[in-house]
Design a protein around this nucleic acid. Structure first.
Lengths: 233, 233
DNA sequence: GCTACTCCGTTCGCTGCCGTACATACGGCG
DNA sequence: CGCCGTATGTACGGCAGCGAACGGAGTAGC
């Protein structure tokens, strides 16, 4: 009985079926709603989350500045990586930005499963590696690429995570994600709209032309996507 | 018989003495010289390196731009992290920037040691965690902080890695590290020199006032240092 | 000594983004 | 309907950093 498309997380789905079932028994499905804070900076991690069709962003705090989004987690990953590295507190803030479902497990159960299940270890390690590559890429991206290209990249990443061309995001929120003013987003988004790549109105963004948007995005998008695809294959 | 100060790597030194010796037997001391490339983007990792008083920087490539340094490895860390995560190719370029010694091991030996030695695993995992935090911090730093503060930060980090107030770095090189023009470095460094925090001439930089330089650096420096100190304690 | 080369300093016009402020459109609710 | 809160559009001065070019100063080699 294949699970519904929306209930699949790549890190778990890659497990053989007996392992999968064993892990699933300890998982609890939860609904994540926009604005929910899963982890706070420096606070203990209570649960690990495996998003299925929700999307969660990780943010760093910077003195005297707004928070900045450093990466995005969806069905391809998990939240609670520090646990897998022997650290109990979250170094970042995890904020739900795409409504949807996730599977969660208590930290204690995860540590047990993780210790015993070599395949789970392998998948998580692989994911940690991808995450590091993505962080490095983002660091460079933040340095070099312009707002419009970065915006396009985040929209595409968001689409991949929530598996939908329709996103609900205000420009204000995008500004916080990208670390720019809302006005900057207005201009960049306006340019993308004028090129018929996206349309939007009052917090509902629709990607009209994925191909075109990829062309408008900075190369970071393709690079990361290539890595993700190659490792999940 | 305690090892000389310059021959210590924190990840290894934290091992109990019998483990330490076992690992040391498989390690080979090597001299790293400025400009040496240890890993290339996308190429297999032949050895892991544990710097003792050398300093190596990791760089990402970005299409149409110069390479950007995303982090710095010294005696507090190691090179070859992907191996510990089940990946054989390096996603970044590793470039020696501070002359000094390191201990190295073949990838095969490392994988064996790593599999068997739980304490080594624990140390390396802890280091991976620190690295991720630092990458995230750097991403934000690149977005928000000005050249002068970032320059001060890198100089301090460099000092901590090579354990010396005297660094040999041209402004041109610093420009590549920070992802700015050499001219930008000239101006920032000039400002720091005018405040008697550093002095320099033809590729030799001397930190005159560490305290003052910390004050001039962006808060990222203190944040990362605090994390490093807390985990190595 | 002279030359060649590397490293550093300075200038100029330009642009992308900032900070701020204000104007407009849309939607829900009484 | 009119009101109000939220989302979006536009405008303006200012600045950090860019790209490019050139001048000077220390170092090495012949």
């Amino acid at each position: 009985m294949p699970l519904a498309y929306q209930a699949v997380n790549s890190l778990l789905a890659a497990l053989p079926s007996n392992d999968y079932q064993h892990v699933l028994d300890r998982l609890e499905p939860v609904t994540l709603t926009f604005g929910e804070v899963l982890y706070q900076f420096g606070k203990p991690i209570q649960h690990v989350y495996f998003p299925t069709n929700s999307q969660v962003s990780l943010q760093t705090l910077t003195e005297g500045h707004q928070a900045l989004q450093v990466c995005m987690v969806g069905h391809e990953g998990m939240l609670g990586i520090p646990l897998a590295l022997g650290v109990g507190d979250s170094p970042v803030c995890a904020l739900v930005q795409g409504n949807g479902m996730a599977l969660r497990m208590t930290s204690a159960n995860f540590l047990n499963e993780f210790r015993l299940n070599v395949l789970l270890q392998r998948n998580v390690h692989r994911y940690i590696h991808e995450l590091m590559v993505e962080l490095a890429q983002t660091a460079a991206c933040n340095r070099f690429h312009h707002v419009e290209a970065r915006l396009a990249r985040w929209l595409l990443m968001m689409r991949d995570r929530v598996r939908s061309n329709q996103l609900h995001l205000t420009q204000d929120l995008l500004g916080h994600m990208l670390g720019v003013r809302r006005v900057g987003v207005t201009q960049a988004a306006g340019a993308l709209r004028q090129r018929k790549l996206i349309s939007y109105s009052r917090g509902e963004i629709i990607i009209l032309d994925g191909q075109g948007l990829e062309a408008a995005a900075c190369p970071c998008y393709r690079i990361n996507k290539r890595i993700d695809d190659s490792t999940s294959a």
